[in-house]
Design a protein around this nucleic acid. Sequence first.
DNA 1: CTATTTGTTTATCC
DNA 2: AGGATAAACAAATA
Length: 277
Amino acid sequence: MPELAEVEYNRKQWDPGIGESIVAVECHEKARDFRKMSASAFKSALPGKTLLSSRTHGKQMLFEISEVIWLGLHLGMTGKLFAADSNHEIAKAEHFVLRTPHRSLVFSDFRMFGNVTLDETNPGEFPVWWQQLPPEILSPSFTKKLVHSHLFRHRKSLVKPLLLNQARFPGIGNWMADEIVWQMKLHPATLCGDLSESQSEALWKASRSVTRDALRIIGTDYSQPPASWLFTHRWKDGGHCPRKGCGAELVRRDLRGRTTCWCPVCQSKHSASDTIQ
DNA sequence: CTATTTGTTTATCC
DNA sequence: AGGATAAACAAATA
């Protein structure tokens, strides 16, 4: 379930291996996750190097490895990272394992929508693709004005699909997008161009608060969010709106290819151009 | 057996 | 030209 908070949680699962040397790499040769490189090049690049640090940006992860190699990972739909014993046996869905003297760092992804990259740079430099990532939701440059310009540029788009656009809202995924519009009482199929000035500001604020709360609760130890979040009620039919004094039955419907859950009472349509088929 | 899935890229259309 | 959209990708689970 990797959106930015789940990605941050997964990144930390390899922390026990920071500072350790990589003595061997095992991988499944034809794993689709190696779409931008060959598995054999991947296998030979890392032994003898040391895992130095890690960071996330939205749903992207970047692991720094000695002599300036950068391991980029994306978890796709079902990717997971974990640390296991050094004698851990590589399973079918595990696309690679980094062996250190003390443990195995595992990348597992049964649906294979993930992605693996290696980049080499000069000391002190990040890979070009990393430098070009858009401003993170909680960064100072993710301003109210920036969100407003996104809404204007994509004025013909529906608001929920825009929230899933990684070039604009990096790290937001399906449940966070639903949570954001639910929090601001906005119908997910509202046309971006129909949002008022105050709704634009509310969208900026809600993006940031949902991001902050998700990182705090899920990103630290994968805790279950409280029952006051839409999150707790959105996964199957028959859930009820957790907002105080509401309790209406939630609607679950496909919106532009993604299952979307909203409260028909709190998030009622408010313009003729709101369409959901 | 079928329907569903927390993501992204690609092709196509406008 | 740039943006919106549906389809494709793959495999497990209900």
